[in-house]
Amino acid sequence: MAGAAGDVKALFSSLKSAYVATPTKLKIIDLYVFYALCTAVIQVVYMALVGSFPFNAFLSGFLSCVGTAVLAVCLRMQVNPKNKEFKELSLERAFADFVLANLVLHLVIMNFLG
């Protein structure tokens, strides 16, 4: 038992040190994702409290957070220099895709918000 706790502690500290090494750009993306997901969670908590009326507004709000978080994760994957799959894709190109997708997402969100 003590060994397991010790292992977990060691795991966490190694994760933490590894994370500190990541480039800032990626940290910005991570922060953005975290911010989006927090907003999503708050909305879910609200919905749990008062019920799902109006459902379309809830979906809009929730999906705007989750959608943009997902797109940010995609961007992170494409921008991460360590990711060999996207080596030939430039950061700007990925960013352009990100912007386009977000613009479409937010149009849809605004339409569905009601």
Binding site: A36, G61, C65
Partner: peptide, 30 residues
């Protein structure tokens, strides 16, 4: 439309939009 009970959802949508805008600026020029 514009139901008071849904204000949190409206605000979160707009906040995400603003967040995206801000992110776009920061990400490119950092």
């Amino acid at each position: 439309r514009f139901i008071p009970a849904a204000y949190p959802y409206y605000s979160s949508s707009f906040s995400m939009m603003f967040g995206f805008f801000l992110f776009g600026v920061v990400f490119l020029y950092h």
